[in-house]
Amino acid sequence: MRIGKQDQAFTAIATSDAESITVRGHDLCGDLIGKIDFSDYFWLLVIGEKPTAAQRKMLDACLVAIAEHGLVPSVQAARMTLAAGPDAWQGAMAAGLLGMGSVVAGSSEVAGQFIAEVLANADANGTDVDAAAIASLKALKQARKKVPGLGHPQHNSGDPRANRLLDIADQLGVSGRHVSALRSLAEHAPGIIERPLPINVSGAIPAVMLDAGWPLEALKAVPLVARSAGLAAHLYEESLRSIGFIMSHEADQKIEYDGPSSSLQDTQA
């Protein structure tokens, strides 16, 4: 990407004048408000065209699946931030979203890139998906890296959200090469990595969304938008009955200091 002056600066998303607002070629007030569901609008905003019925249902299913999973790190960060600054919802929401990285909640992007890489290797080497999946798994094992999209510390016998999303993709006729690659990885991973590694929700979401036509570069937007809804629920509850300082206190009690002692502590000892 060039830095500095650039020629031909354009956006195809939206424009406005004194009388109207145009979004992706549609009049916001005349064509969209009150006439389109948010999932359709989300798809339209990102991709530039309205989704098919199957694409909408698949997106809806993914948003519902990942919106909420209890007091995960991003939720704790958001609730403790709001407890410390009750007037700063935007700061608390930002704290939660910033905590969605490659390990928790935002890992769909990493898994999607891995699945796409497996398929690209299959195409480049003229092999089938199974062979490419096996080669990728062996490379991860040799590098002592985790398999993106597989395994879950809590749902170690199988992530029910992932299973449901894959079933829906099958029913809608959405399942394609990405779902096939994910299933191949899940089939061969236990024997190669030598431990159970069921498909998790962060593996299912990119597989079904990529097969539905969602762009790889915008994958992280799906869990971000979904978790915003979950964070809103937690922040509203936090404003009514706060547990932010309780969580902070519990962390303080559970974590022991093992650094050097002060001169005063040495005297008291």
Rank of each mutant, 00 (worst) to 15 (best):
A94F: 07
E187T: 15
D123E: 15
D123I: 10
A132V: 10
H152G: 04
A122T: 08
H188A: 15
A162V: 03
A120Q: 09
Q142P: 07
G213M: 11
A111L: 09
A218L: 09
L140F: 09
A94E: 06
K145I: 04
Q113M: 12
S157A: 14
G173D: 05
A169W: 00
A124T: 13
P215Q: 09
G106D: 02
D128L: 08
D123M: 10
K141Q: 14
S180N: 15
V147C: 01
K141M: 09
A124Y: 11
L185K: 12
I115L: 15
L216C: 11
E187Q: 15
A189W: 07
V201C: 07
M93N: 13
G203D: 02
A204F: 05
G176E: 04
I205M: 07
P206Y: 03
N200H: 10
R183T: 04
G99I: 11
L165F: 03
Q171M: 08
L182G: 00
S102D: 14
N125R: 15
S202Q: 08
D123V: 12
D159Q: 06
A139L: 14
P148G: 07
S202R: 02
L98H: 14
V147Y: 00
A120L: 07
Q113Y: 07
G96D: 11
S175D: 04
L210Q: 04
F114N: 05
K146E: 10
G158S: 06
H178C: 04
I168G: 00
G149S: 08
L166Y: 01
G96A: 09
V174C: 04
I115R: 01
I168V: 11
M93E: 12
R144N: 12
D130N: 14
I199P: 00
G126L: 02
P206I: 06
E217H: 09
N163F: 04
G101H: 06
Q171S: 12
S102G: 14
H178T: 03
K146G: 10
A169F: 01
V174S: 02
G176R: 03
N121Q: 14
